[in-house]
Design a protein around this nucleic acid. Structure first.
Lengths: 202, 202
DNA sequence: ATTTTGATTGAACAATCATTCAATATATTC
DNA sequence: GAATATATTGAATGATTGTTCAATCAAAAT
């Protein structure tokens, strides 16, 4: 009995606000008080839902991981045509991912990885999940004989290094032209590794 | 006349202390006061050398850039043998780089790149310098006919994506075995791109 | 020795911080 | 509508924040 709990809802709202404040002024400047201010609520209400400041940080980490998890719901592709596989690679390199979460906040959280083992494990698990997705796709494509690779896991690892390296470097590139040129360059390299069979498609 | 200025010396010491504090508790928790405490000096002395907190942050950024700049003093290699080129690639992937600067602090600073254009430009320039170093090496190696590549710039870009992607991902890997396996895997990929001529050396 | 310049300290500032506690308000259940 | 559980507020806490200012100290130049 008693009032129905708003815990889940409010916690999400608060984390979302924490993210927005961090996005604007940087994680290193974001405070509990500013989050409350941003939401027009009392600071003590934030504390009510997150016992400590650290708990709020943990909430933000989970928030990122959830967002990224949404990416890789299985899309039901069978990878029986080069087109499907190319679309996946395109997706991995696409700017859509960048739009998913602010890069400044993301890398600030990523940086916490080096000091907090729990955060590190959670981040690692996320990245491994994404890799598993690609491995699965490559395996299917291989069975359908549309790629010529000897080891899906190795290929996936290299492709993700290219993807993550691309994000890292291209984040610093202001020139659209340079951005597109170098993105294409790395994407081409990734695709060339797959030795996709030429059979008219895609 | 008057007393000789210690500005340069003290500023460096303070930035070094700022780095050490950040390394221990994270950039997002490091404060001007804690830096002073760490050095056993008065907080106002820190202010005396860095007018504002932001100036201290700028100092830290310069500190990183200088550190990394030290890497690529020309080592006088002529790249007339595969061995020399292999050594360079080994170096790029080596753990030495990681030891140069704390990763947590580094990525926290890197994150600032997304909100501060000046910082972004400085970081970009550093990364481009490193790329130029590799391009130069590849050009020499090509002239000496020890590699078979069509475009040094493209090759360098891909190799650095692999290097930077490797750093990013491997930072989350706790298992030494997994670390070494995946590092080797990516290094091999980079080397294979060079199609180093087999002529007994290295 | 006086002057000058900068080093360093120490006290004080208001602002903001995370956190606490009690008080009040609002639903829900019986 | 009484009981209960949670939401939300508001005031207050002591600690820490970045910054300012005047005072003192130490070295270099005249």
């Amino acid at each position: 009995m008693g009032r129905t709990s708003l815990k889940q809802t409010r916690q999400k709202e608060i984390v979302q606000a924490f993210y927005e404040v961090s996005k604007k002024i940087g994680l290193e400047n974001a405070s509990l008080a500013k989050v409350a201010d941003h939401m027009d609520i009392n600071p003590s209400l934030v504390v009510h839902y997150f016992k400590t400041r650290d708990a709020l940080f943990s909430g933000l980490i989970s928030f990122i991981l959830e967002k990224y998890n949404d990416i890789y719901q299985a899309n039901g592709a069978t990878y029986s045509t080069p087109k499907e596989l190319r679309a996946l690679i395109e997706n991995l390199f696409s700017r859509k991912w960048n739009k998913l979460f602010d890069d400044s906040v993301f890398y600030s959280c990523y940086a916490m990885t080096y000091r907090d083992k729990k955060i590190r494990k959670a981040f690692k698990a996320l990245h491994d999940s994404l890799r598993a997705l690609l491995v699965d796709a490559l395996r299917k494509a291989k069975q359908n004989q549309i790629v010529d690779i000897s080891n899906e896991k190795v290929t996936a690892e290299v492709i993700f290094a290219l993807v993550e390296g691309a994000y890292y470097y291209l984040g610093m590139v202001d020139s659209k032209e340079e951005y597109n040129t170098k993105l294409k360059l790395l994407k081409t390299q990734a695709l060339s590794m797959l030795k996709i069979e030429r059979n008219g498609q895609g």
